[in-house]
Design a protein around this nucleic acid. Structure first.
Lengths: 195, 195
DNA sequence: TGCGTTTTAGATCACTCGATCTATAACTCA
DNA sequence: TGAGTTATAGATCGAGTGATCTAAAACGCA
């Protein structure tokens, strides 16, 4: 019983993601956002609250679209050891095919926002914990079916995989060299495969 | 034959480092900097050029003070395998004893600045390459004296150590948990020690 | 068609941004 | 001491910041 919105919320959120993802939070102005989202500042504030709330919504959607779907797709279609390989192959391919070096928005957030915004910091930490749990499920399953080494605890191997993921993603922003990123992964893979 | 500066360049640079380190480049204003450095904006511009040039000088000094001296100290006083352990022990201790979660200014720069500032990006990439070379020297020496595995190439092991370093440093900004950071390192150490 | 509601668009708020100007103060050397 | 040089302090520049206000436009329902 009132005027409906002229914009598609998911579409304008995707535009906001692109802004925040490539420039970060501080370097993105509300005018940049409004222009890219095809709306005026007033509409933006009316629909999303303030800049920080818009960032939170953008990050939530980014995580759901990128991490959520990928984990589900990989975990349901591959054996545990292959799931880990596939996950990292995709990450490395993404990092190398990223001409603007945007990296991963979640990890960028972990660096720029987590220490200064308590609430956002918790969200980010939770997602990183989910990632660790994904790796942990893969490692445990792999240890059960004999495709992953039992020489190290599943907990520590999962933590190593999480750390390796962040390392690759961050390093790619400054040194997006195929040999470097793949070289990091090789000893890790060898460790997992060790009898 | 003119009026000498009233400030100590190294002291005001240290103050600038603290600003940029804890808040990042974009979120730090020139007024923040001038206040922390105990000088006016005009003097700041006169002495350092502009904000970006000041950031470069701050980062240079940060790297020289933190990375340069640590590498030299560790590499000259310890055996190669112990040097790697000591390096990471120090990094983890630093990450856990960092109540404001500032992390590593160089790695923060790699995320915030490297993709958007070509010149600074090269500087950062060069330092990361130096770090890789430090690890490479340690690994090669360790492989020679039998304290580090030869099951993996020294190149890849050095890359792994660099990636692990970045992973730990970034993860600590969102999840500064002792078990997590130490857990990452354990499988890496086991891999190095493998016969 | 008019009422109530909500979203628009554009102007504008006070403030802060990086950067600069001017005038004064502080020094060296002749 | 006075000429020349440089650093200082404070005011201020235009542009841009996040956020808000007002008024017009677009709907559903009576």
């Amino acid at each position: 019983m009132a005027r409906p919105r002229e914009f598609d919320e998911t579409k304008v959120l995707d535009a906001a993601i692109q802004c925040f993802w490539s420039r970060g939070y501080e370097a993105t102005s509300v005018r940049d956002l409004a222009h890219s989202m095809g709306m005026t500042g007033a509409s933006l504030y009316n629909a999303f609250g303030d800049k920080r709330a818009l960032y939170r919504k953008s990050l939530d959607r980014y995580v759901a679209q990128n991490f959520g779907t990928r984990v589900e797709r990989i975990e349901h279609h591959l054996q545990p050891r292959q799931a880990i390989t596939a996950f990292f192959d995709e990450i490395i391919a993404r990092s190398l095919d990223d001409s603007r070096r945007k990296g991963c928005m979640l990890i960028n957030s972990a660096v720029e926002m987590a220490p200064h915004d308590k609430r956002l910091g918790r969200v980010i930490a939770d997602v990183l914990l989910e990632m660790e749990r994904f790796f942990l499920r893969c490692v445990k399953a792999g240890q059960r079916d004999g495709t992953i080494t039992k020489s190290q605890s599943a907990d520590n191997l999962a933590k190593l995989l999480l750390g390796t993921l962040l390392g690759i993603r961050v390093l790619a922003r400054a040194r997006p060299e195929p040999d470097l990123l793949r070289g990091i992964l090789k000893p890790v893979a060898a460790l997992l495969d060790q009898p």
